[in-house]
Write a protein that binds this DNA or RNA. Structure first.
Lengths: 237, 237
DNA sequence: AAAATAGTGTCTGTAAGACACTATCAA
DNA sequence: TTGATAGTGTCTTACAGACACTATTTT
């Protein structure tokens, strides 16, 4: 499919752009939000950090291209990626007009383990939301990683999107294993919202709730043993 | 086909696409949702109906192109258009790969008057949501208008988007004049949601509410006189 | 026993929801 | 007066939110 689409619109001079996708893969560990980023190896923005993503090479619905990128980056993933915004500013990429549709997903820390293990590939970086500016910042070990393009704004928009939907959808469970403790679930919510929640209230609400797919939280019978009283494991059933 | 995302422009053949925008301009009159559509005058889909929109001719952020289309279609408009989805299926336009970012706005019936008056231009059509299928249908005077491209799906997605945000944002007021009655406000909500609401409850909620910009509903002192008891006019202040 | 984490009970305020009612206009 | 539309009062139930409390484990 290399035919130039310009020829198909004889009566107009429509602009052409490079379609692209960027993925904001977020996870919650150590009580904070983390995002997958990798270092750019060529100009522009050589040495700065970017989200996984790329220009589209074959005409295909973005939802398909998105799964390709996922497979290459992480190896496998069936988490629900949702599109949340399309970034279209002609100045966002100095090489040309790149229109990027951004997707966001919460993923389980275990699924990202292979990313970190690889060593030279993408890394997990802590996300800091700057509530005043419209850009998130990322850092590892307290060292800020400079971001390429408008990727700070993309991460910011992704987290704000999640904040709006985390309480009405089942997205939070994408960040958790099959079985999880109530505290783990609460930490996912708190990390996304960027603020603490009341423990008794959160518990009550979650246990009373029937989720959109009809399931609700059930104890598995197993327990998580830590340094204090064991915590019950819950799952969706 | 190599798929190393680090080799972008120089060594790969990224696809090109035509960026486009489509506008879903909705209004509420006669107690129902209406949308601006116009008849296509050439293939493909000649004679079928489309949303206002077009291919982008100059690289520019979509938000700018959107205002251009608005100015040409309606003459003037400052309503808040919000992007809600980007449609990217390569098969959605038989001429080539057209990636369309769709925007939705509620607008005042008076602003659309000139559209209808023009006669030969766009028309206002009644919107029927087909809750089962993911496509809305439109009709005028009980006669269904066949839609071009995936515009039925775009309208469906637009209304679903509105349903999710109408109660938490101030969008509903975009469909109303400076002063409006409580019933007019309620009708806007009901038309978007596609279901009736309790009158006393709606009234209580709206009068008790402080909206995101800090304003709340205040009576203007004027009255709307109809066939029954006059209704108080309200406004945001 | 002390520390740590898990989990519960109770009270108060507020909002949802249902329903019946009153108010004010035109004809 | 009747019909029509506008607007209110009241009662019940549910949930948010705050806070103090109890429970079960490890060290």
């Amino acid at each position: 499919m290399t035919s130039n689409p310009r020829l198909l619109f004889p009566r107009e001079q429509p602009a052409l752009a490079h379609p692209a996708i960027d993925l904001v893969l977020l996870t919650v560990s150590d009580g904070g939000l983390q995002v997958v980023v990798r270092e750019r190896e060529r100009p522009p923005f050589e040495g700065r950090w970017t989200l996984p993503g790329r220009l589209i090479e074959e005409p295909a619905a973005f939802e398909l291209a998105m799964h390709e990128v996922l497979y290459e980056e992480i190896g496998d993933l069936d988490a629900a990626l949702r599109p949340f915004f399309t970034f279209s500013d002609p100045a966002r990429d100095p090489r040309g007009w790149v229109i990027s549709t951004a997707f966001v997903a919460l993923v389980r820390p275990a699924w990202l383990a292979r990313v970190t293990e690889a060593g030279l590939g993408p890394v997990l970086a802590d996300v800091t939301m700057d509530e005043a500016r419209k850009e998130a910042r990322v850092m590892t070990g307290g060292v800020a990683l400079p971001l390429a393009f408008d990727h700070g704004a993309i991460i910011d928009a992704a987290v704000r999107h999640l904040r709006g939907v985390i309480d009405g959808t089942m997205i939070a469970f994408d960040a958790l294993d099959y079985a999880f403790t109530m505290l783990e679930l609460q930490t996912v919510h708190e990390s996304v919202l960027g603020k603490p929640l009341s423990k008794p209230l959160f518990r009550k609400r979650m246990l009373a709730r029937t989720f959109p797919d009809g399931r609700s939280l059930q104890t598995t019978g197993d327990e998580h043993r830590g340094s204090g009283r064991p915590a019950a494991f819950y799952t969706l059933a």
